[in-house]
Design a protein around this nucleic acid. Structure first.
Length: 439
DNA sequence: CCTCCACCGGAAAGCCGGGTCA
DNA sequence: TGACCCGGCTTTCCGGTGGAGG
């Protein structure tokens, strides 16, 4: 945790407040108000001074966050032009075609879409054209991963609050349409990570959304963003044809392009001269290595800066990037594991405790046996093997284990499970799991 | 070439805790 | 209050299958 973050600041302020009024300490002795001793000014002053003096390599960290929209979007001129062409009719009051955007993660899809629509709204506002953009990120957990919730979310954006559950879905649609009709406008709905939505809620939602124009005076265009290119092929043909009336592909950035993006952002984010030679190049190279993910590059740079700050360095060294990469991966795994429910912990613990004597080739059956024993020992209900099998798949998808289906011939078919957590982290993780299991 | 193991993974249905509404 | 609805998690049921060993 950073020492001088906002929480810390408020804590200090609160302490200060108590001291100003005077307070009783643990031994119930009255400690006189600050100003009587004239320490207060000094205390607070030094705090603020420290806060100001505390040197940071950052000037404005925001510029490195993935949600930041820069003044100009580099290397996406073509896509912006295409998108503008497709969406422009909305300015004349016509309904633009539905648009489908795809490209790998970190290729600037969301950024470009937001940037373009932002410009669009500005012009629309100036010219007094009724236009509204609704942006929904379907990946944000718990808010929009089912049909009900998506529509509810959309309706909420239109200022119609809908209870988070309880109503029939039909009712929610009606409320949404009423909200649309309340003011006749053109709407562009951006559905980010639309593949996530479909995998969880099915393509029914999309079908209904594409058909909703028939029930309302307002016109609605959909703008779907996906990083899974195959996703569109698995859709209902009717949805497919109407959703992808237009398509734009975002190719990955190459190393040079990532470099220039990083430079642009770094200029805003860091103080002058804190970047050592070669830092940006290295970040870019790391990110280009796995398919030109600019978001990753930015994150890497940001964390490298944080590492340098924590070490009280005045500049970001090349080594900090390696440390940053390690830290990101570590935090990711730790975050995944600590947020899992107990059953998952039990299972993971079984896998880990089986690992030392069986090497790196565990089979579902053995894991399940250990898991059952563990459940009995800790007095937990035992899940069926079918369910456990699903949990193993989930771990696989999260990237903390690797589970491949193999055939052992006469000895059946099973999954070959190996652990993907770095060796160095294992003791710590085991400890976390143990604690969670006990309780 | 056939068999048959030990599990995979799809489909459907049940249960539970959260909610609305009249 | 009871009738309903939803989503998440789980169980039940069951057809499917790659390949070692006969």
């Amino acid at each position: 945790m950073e020492k001088y973050n906002i929480k810390y600041f408020y804590k200090r302020l609160y302490c200060f407040h108590k001291k100003r009024r005077g307070a009783y300490n643990k031994a119930n002795a009255y400690i006189p108000p600050f100003h009587l001793e004239n320490i207060m000014e000094r205390g607070l002053e030094t705090f603020f001074e420290g806060f100001l003096k505390k040197e940071s390599v950052f000037f404005d960290k925001k510029a490195l966050q993935s949600s930041y929209i820069p003044e100009t979007v580099n290397h996406r001129e073509d896509q912006i032009k295409q998108m503008a062409n497709i969406l422009a009719p909305v300015l004349k009051g016509d309904k633009p075609s539905n648009l489908f955007i795809y490209g790998k993660t970190g290729t600037g899809k969301t950024l470009t879409a937001k940037y373009t629509t932002q410009q669009l709204t500005e012009i629309a506002k100036r010219e007094n054209i009724p236009l509204e953009i609704l942006y929904i990120n379907c990946k944000l957990k718990r808010s929009t991963d089912t049909e009900y919730r998506l529509i509810a979310q959309l309706a909420t954006e239109l200022g119609k609050s809908i209870p988070p559950t309880g109503l029939p879905t039909e009712e929610v649609y009606k409320a949404f349409i009423r909200a649309l009709n309340r003011q006749q406008r053109n709407y562009i709905i951006i559905l980010d990570e639309i593949d996530q939505l479909v995998s969880k809620a099915g393509d029914n939602v999309l079908y209904n959304l594409t058909r909703i124009n028939e029930d309302t005076e307002s016109q609605i265009s959909l703008l779907g963003i996906s990083n899974d290119i195959m996703f569109i092929d698995n859709l209902d043909p009717r949805v497919k044809s109407s959703l992808s009336e237009e398509e734009i592909v975002f190719p990955p950035y190459n190393a040079l392009q990532i470099q220039s993006i990083l430079k642009q952002r770094a200029e805003l984010a860091f103080n002058k001269g804190v970047l050592m030679e070669g830092v940006i190049e290295k970040c870019a190279a790391y990110a280009a290595r796995d398919h030109g993910d600019a978001r990753r590059a930015l994150e890497l740079l940001r964390v490298a800066g944080e590492v340098a700050d924590r070490k009280n360095l005045k500049a970001i060294m090349i080594d900090n990037i390696d440390e940053a990469e390690e830290k990101i991966e570590k935090d990711r795994i730790l975050d995944i594991i600590t947020t899992q429910p107990k059953q998952y912990h039990l299972l993971l613990f079984s896998i880990l405790s089986l690992k030392p004597n069986r090497g790196n080739a565990l089979f579902t059956g053995e894991v399940y046996e250990i898991y059952k024993a563990l459940c009995k020992k800790t007095n937990t209900t035992i899940l069926t093997q079918r369910r456990v099998s699903d949990i193993i798949s989930e771990f696989d998808m999260l990237g903390i284990i690797n589970a491949k289906v193999i055939s052992k011939g006469r000895y059946g078919r099973t999954r070959d499970i190996s652990v993907e957590i770095p060796e160095a982290m294992l003791p710590r993780i085991k400890k976390i799991l143990e604690e969670s299991i006990r309780i």
